[in-house]
Structure formats: structure tokens, C-alpha cells
């Protein structure tokens, strides 16, 4: 469904992403992990159309969308959430979600009905009339998710929707994400919470210092020496292995 090929992004002399490729099959939940500063969010903004890559191409459903602006991609069915939540602070929860719903529903009544339906699905049903600014961190994350869902996307890009949540809030939201996938929405998620990655993702890509260093099933990727070294430093994998060997 999504094909990212050899994306390179330079900011002046800094190469944030270098020749990164990944693909997301229809109906899957694919994870994108990597240490801080690896370029994950940069890659996301390129996929969502907020930045044009220095090189490479992005294809969605077989169509090249590299040159298309963000709002056109949203119409094609790509929705994103923001790592740093971006609520419409002056509006209430219903109005926030309705902006997303208006993408496919021109009439106010339809858009609002759709917004209420989505709000209930992500667990914001009781907060519909609350100002968005009054929501807790967990509530704002749900709002990000709800707004994106209200655009009725085919592909949902989740940028650390679980960051900043406590363990019980994470437990609550994992089934919500699973249910979204079960409804036929393909998901690509950046996530640091490994518990969620292990539970949700069928496939994981690892980005470190702008390069894709590994991919595969979550369990295999976590055991990959290159991945361990990217997080813990050069030689870490060897030391861990040596430690395990001497324990045995």
C-alpha cells in the first residue's frame, strides 16, 4: 500500500535521512523504531507530505505521490498524528474531530454525527463538549487519533501516540489501535514503548542515524546485534552475548 524508496533528506549539511526505504502492506501494523534523533519523524513528515525529500520517492497505492501536498495526500487517504499534539485549542472536542470529518462529509450534521461516532470509538464520548485545551495528556493523544480517524483514512501514520502515557493508559489504548486495524485501516507507527510494538506490529523497521539498519519480525529485530549497538553503543551486542554466555 505504501512504498517509500531511497528517501534522503538534507537540512543544509546535515543528512537527517539517508537512502531509507520501507514498505507497508495493506492491512498490516508496521512499526518504525530507532534511537532518538534517528530521523523517524522526518521520514514521517515526508510520507505525509509536510516536507519534500531531497531525493527518493513515495508511492501510495501504486501512485507516485512524492510531489503532492499534504492536504491532497489526506484526501487520497493518508492521515497522520503529531508527536507533539496539535489540538485546535479554542475549539471543543466535537468541533476538533469534525474538522477531520468534514473532509468526507460536506454537511454539518453529517460531519458532527461522524465526529461523535469516532469520539466514542477512541473513548472520548463523554468529553465531546469539553474544550480541547482542558484535556489531559492521554485525552489529547486520543484526540489526535480521533481527528485523524475522522478523515476515514486508508493509511494511518501514528507518531508516538503512546509517549507520555502511564502503563494503564497504554493498556487501554492498545486495543483501540488493534480495533482500528481490524476495521481495515493500515497503520504505520513510530513508537518507543516496546511493549506496544511487540503486541501490535507484525513487522518492524529500524532507523538509526538516518539509515535503515534492520527490519523483520519484532522479536528478531530486537535480537539483531546491529539494533542493539544502535541503541547501546558499539560492542554492546558482543558484551551482552559474552555476559549471557558466562551466566550460563
Amino acid at each position: 500500500m505504501l512504498d517509500v524508496q531511497d528517501i534522503t533528506m538534507r537540512f543544509g549539511g546535515l543528512v537527517a535521512v539517508s537512502g531509507a526505504s520501507l514498505s507497508v502492506p495493506k492491512g498490516a501494523i508496521v512499526g518504525l523504531i530507532g534511537p532518538n534523533g534517528a530521523g523517524k519523524t522526518t521520514l514521517f513528515t515526508i510520507i505525509a507530505g509536510f516536507q519534500a525529500p531531497s531525493a527518493g520517492r513515495v508511492a501510495f497505492g501504486g501512485q507516485d505521490i512524492t510531489g503532492k501536498p499534504a492536504h491532497i495526500r489526506a484526501r487520497l487517504g493518508i492521515a497522520r498524528t503529531f508527536q507533539i499534539v496539535q489540538p485546535f485549542a479554542g475549539l471543543n472536542v466535537r468541533e476538533n474531530i469534525a474538522v477531520g470529518a468534514y473532509l468526507r462529509h460536506a454537511r454539518r450534521a453529517d460531519a458532527h454525527a461522524r465526529a461523535e461516532e469516532v469520539a466514542r470509538r477512541v473513548g472520548l464520548g463523554v468529553d465531546l463538549d469539553k474544550p480541547a485545551a482542558s484535556l489531559t495528556v492521554a485525552g489529547r493523544k486520543r484526540l489526535e487519533l480521533a481527528r485523524a480517524l475522522a478523515t476515514e483514512p486508508l493509511l494511518l501514520l501514528l507518531d508516538e501516540v503512546l509517549a507520555g502515557l502511564n502503563p494503564s493508559e497504554i493498556r487501554d489504548i492498545i486495543p483501540v489501535i488493534q480495533a482500528i486495524r481490524d476495521d481495515g485501516v493500515t497503520i504505520l507507527m513510530i513508537e518507543h514503548v516496546m511493549q506496544a510494538v511487540m503486541n501490535l506490529c507484525s513487522h518492524v523497521h529500524v532507523l538509526a542515524r538516518g539509515r535503515m539498519i534492520a527490519q523483520g519480525a519484532p522479536r528478531d529485530v530486537c535480537a539483531d546485534p546491529a539494533v542493539i549497538e544502535a541503541y547501546l553503543g558499539k560492542g554492546a551486542a558482543g558484551r551482552i552475548e559474552a555476559g549471557e554466555a558466562s551466566d550460563a
Binding site: F50, A70, H71, F88, G90, L91, L103, R147, T151
Partner: peptide
């Protein structure tokens, strides 16, 4: 109103 409140968020929602 969405554009007033947050242009980036509006763009992400297809505005």
C-alpha cells in the same frame, strides 16, 4: 477556524 487555530493540524486533516 481550524486554519486560525493551527495551520499544520488543519493541513493534516485535508484542509
Amino acid at each position: 477556524v481550524a486554519v486560525r487555530e493551527n495551520e499544520d493540524a488543519a493541513r493534516a486533516l485535508g484542509v
